[in-house]
Design a protein around this nucleic acid. Sequence first.
DNA 1: TTTGAAGATGATAATGGTTCTCATTTGCAA
DNA 2: TTGCAAATGAGAACCATTATCATCTTCAAA
Lengths: 143, 143
Amino acid sequence: MDKPQPDDLKDAGLKSTVPRLNILALFKSGQERHMSAEDVYKQLLANGDDVGLATVYRVLTQFEQAGLLVRHYFEGGKSVFELNQGKHHDHIVCLQCGHVEEFYDAAIESRQEKVATERGFAVHNHSLHIYADCVNKACPHKH
Amino acid sequence: MDKPQPDDLKDAGLKSTVPRLNILALFKSGQERHMSAEDVYKQLLANGDDVGLATVYRVLTQFEQAGLLVRHYFEGGKSVFELNQGKHHDHIVCLQCGHVEEFYDAAIESRQEKVATERGFAVHNHSLHIYADCVNKACPHKH
DNA sequence: TTTGAAGATGATAATGGTTCTCATTTGCAA
DNA sequence: TTGCAAATGAGAACCATTATCATCTTCAAA
Ligand SMILES: [Mn+2]
Ligand SMILES: [Mn+2]
Ligand SMILES: [Zn+2]
Ligand SMILES: [Zn+2]
């Protein structure tokens, strides 16, 4: 089962409300994997859901704290959220079209641990963002 | 030679002005390696230099474009600058005291290249931030 | 040296993303 | 059904940063 159920929210200790269900449904729809608050807000309005921007911000933060979403701070100021599917990964961001590609590299991950512990740190989390251009002149990721 | 000379600015195509010299001198002083615009502004005022915040922002951006400084986007919203000494490195940020520690790991660097090129990207730059706690209960980096 | 125009400065207004306030509405346990 | 704690949404407030613009500097040329 993949559609948003009140249970998803209840399990996270959140009341099952209309805005929360709509926002979770939007992420689970899989149309856009990485969305800013503004993206979510516009999508909901486009879907005919009447929601307030403040609510979108609040709910995104709550979902992050509940572990339903993961927040990323890419360059450019605005944070971006994605569904938390348990599998950590890092990101390549295309500087031409903004397309975000995910990757996981075990060697990079373990080296980070090593580097940090060697220096007396206990790692909480990390962010690795590669900013790059699509190689072909016609950006293949354009959408 | 390590003190700011008008030449540092001229070489960058920038007029040698009082605010620019003071800001460059502050970074070259090495007291704080990583500073936000606000940090720089407050330091200059503390030094008795009368500068405007707008000028600090402008000059930091100019220095970045001229390659004199490097800008980092850490979590927390505000960007942080450091003297560009030619050697790329990544950062571990202590979540307790905010201390920033630098590191360079050749294995991580080359793996990033590999991952990106394998996927058809030409890397422009990347940011790797490890957020961690100091291991000892008395944070050794507290300042 | 003096000078004048291009460029730089700084007080302040404006911007953009995000959070706060608070009156009103809604979810849900009893 | 009802009551009330919790959630919502319109708008104000906030914070980092950028834009404006009148005034001040720098520096090349005279
Ligand atoms: Mn992702
Ligand atoms: Mn550094
Ligand atoms: Zn692309
Ligand atoms: Zn520390």
